[in-house]
Design a protein around this nucleic acid. Structure first.
Lengths: 220, 220
DNA sequence: CGACAGCCGATTGTCGACAGTCGTCTAGCT
DNA sequence: AGCTAGACGACTGTCGACAATCGGCTGTCG
């Protein structure tokens, strides 16, 4: 365990920061499934005490990225294709269907502009071949809508599911998605949202997630 | 905040114990939505330090039973009918469909006997009008199957969803379910499981959860 | 009378120390 | 050599103390 990046946080919500760093390390594959996580080491590495680290680990455990055995530490988990396709994706669809429906009447012009900007960013990232930036914009696109739905639990569950989905595509199925198609789909989805037709949006979201995360197509 | 029951734990996994007590207090309605939760008070009440209490609160937050505002404490949340029907129930169905399918070939004779015993217990509880015992047996029935599926994440997500569903039916929609029907449905479900016909089981699970938790019928 | 800076109490966030638990390694016995 | 009791090391679990933050209260000044 060395070099997770970043040291000392100025002094503000270290817990969250620790969680972010570890999550990034895990979803990126820098910490592979099976790797052991030792509170003291992580704390030292990040220049904090064990308390924030413990809380971050519990968070990651809830997200299904790690397991922890009492008195014996934690380890990074893998994600199976079965699980992603049969559980995580359907759950995401359920959550997003509900959240998009709730969000639709609440989206402001400003929100739409932000979504547009994110879709554009995806397009640029796709062209430049930056899977990183593509995925980031993708996540922020969906998250913005879910935030606007003002459904606390939905946001929370989404944040619980999403890291595992991302870990799967980054670690276990890289190049699974066609970047250009992803960007294009978001533009289309945005158009449907602009139309304001709720039924169409829900259908679009579902199709979007399915083709986006669904069972294998060939890499581009 | 007084009288959540139970004091001092001998000395073993206090965190879990704290979480259980609080979860029970919340789902039972003893702690109503809006109630404030103060770490120090809870710790004193239960005779521990704040550390286990903090972790329990984080757990409950993940389960969506409470929210916590940085530096300003936590409060008990309510659950809306919309959310239960449109999000929690569909997610439960997704999880259980997958878990039942995986569990089916792994269920031993012994497991079936246990399930039978739980269904019988539900029947007795229904007759005696004990909603408590009915719900407990119900939960253990489903949880046993999910445990046998050996899908770690499924079990975990199920445990994340389930307390909120239970809180809803205990606090906000008591008498919503027909006890006799619940018991009967589990017996039927068990029969289908015994038949070993996977497709039939999945269909049965779905119908079961829908009628069991679905949109309103009249109380018995 | 009202706005506003600064203080105060309540409560969480973080820390360092110590207690408890588990797996392993070892020494002594047979 | 094989086996078991106990010691050891590596961690996590828990604790009590202290730091940081927030919202409300207060006193001052215009």
């Amino acid at each position: 365990m060395s070099g997770l990046g970043l040291r000392r946080v100025p002094s503000q919500s270290r817990r969250e920061h620790v969680a972010e760093i570890l999550r990034e390390a895990i979803t990126s594959g820098q910490l592979a499934p099976g790797a052991r996580l030792i509170e003291l080491d992580i704390a030292a590495e990040l220049g904090t005490s064990r308390a924030p680290v413990r809380e971050a680990l519990r968070q990651l455990e809830q997200e299904g990225l790690i397991v922890s055995y009492p008195y014996r530490g934690s380890e990074v988990l893998g994600v199976s294709q079965d699980e992603v396709e049969q559980v995580l994706v359907p759950i995401r669809i359920t959550i997003e269907r509900f959240a998009f429906a709730k969000a639709l009447p609440r989206l402001t012009e400003d929100d739409l502009r932000t979504l547009q900007a994110l879709a554009d960013e995806m397009e640029r990232a796709a062209i430049e071949g930056s899977a990183e930036r593509l995925a980031d914009a993708d996540i922020r696109f969906h998250e913005l809508v879910i935030v606007r739905s003002e459904q606390r639990h939905c946001l929370q569950m989404w944040r619980t599911i999403q890291p595992r989905v991302r870990a799967y595509f980054r670690r276990d199925a890289p190049g699974h998605q066609d970047p250009a198609a992803v960007a294009k789909q978001h533009h289309q989805l945005l158009d449907v949202i602009r139309s304001g037709d709720e039924a169409a949006v829900l259908q679009s979201v579902e199709r979007h997630i399915h083709t986006h995360l669904g069972p294998g197509r060939e890499p581009a």
